[in-house]
């Protein structure tokens, strides 16, 4: 009972208190190492990336082409039916520019990221990736982009085999 409670408890301290030893604490850095199984859908997806191709799966019941691929459709809750290559061109659904790294460290130059609907994937089916060769203020929802791949000999079967997506500028191919 907010009005009837006299005292709210808790003892705050600052980062400085900790660093200067005023708050005793134990430190630990557990490091768990993993080997995540890819399974057939992700394993194929990664293997295709190594070859410079992007693959999805189609569900014949709802008709969706899912990228990244999975072996079952979560809408229809049945196995998906076939492998489908999609293009390495697409449309920006939404984007952002990150001045934060993975541990919230500050970055001088932002990483521009986007959800991209690849040509051949169903409407609304996007993948997350970075944008390059473009300034933050030039990016817009609906912008057409194309993948920039690592050289074949450097690819390792990873999402990062695509370095980034770059804008398709007028006069350049890559659309339909």
């Amino acid at each position: 009972m907010s009005v009837k409670i006299r005292e709210y408890r808790g003892t705050p301290y600052s980062r400085k208190d900790l660093e200067e030893g005023r708050v005793p604490a134990f430190r630990d850095k557990p490091r768990a190492r993993y080997a995540w199984a890819c399974g057939p859908a992700m394993g194929r997806f990664l293997a295709e990336l190594k070859e410079g191709r992007i693959i999805g799966r189609r569900c014949r019941r709802c008709g969706r082409v899912l990228v990244p691929p999975r072996m079952f459709c979560e809408w229809c809750f049945r196995p998906t039916d076939e492998w489908v290559y999609v293009r390495d061109t697409g449309t920006v659904l939404t984007f952002s520019a990150s001045y934060l790294g993975p541990a919230a460290e500050r970055l001088k130059e932002p990483i521009i990221i986007a959800v991209i609907q690849l040509d051949g994937a169903s409407p609304g089916i996007g993948i997350l990736h970075k944008l390059g060769e473009v300034k933050q203020e030039e990016v817009h929802v609906g912008m057409r982009v194309k993948a920039v791949w690592k050289p074949p000999e450097e690819r390792e079967g990873a999402i990062t085999d695509i370095l980034y997506f770059k804008p398709i500028r007028e006069g350049q191919g890559g659309g339909e």
Binding site: M42, T94, F95, P102, I111
Partner: peptide
Amino acid sequence: IYTRPLGPNLVWIFALEMQR
């Protein structure tokens, strides 16, 4: 496998959603 190699932080998804 799909996302972590891109070096994401959690604010990315909020920023993308807010923009959308």
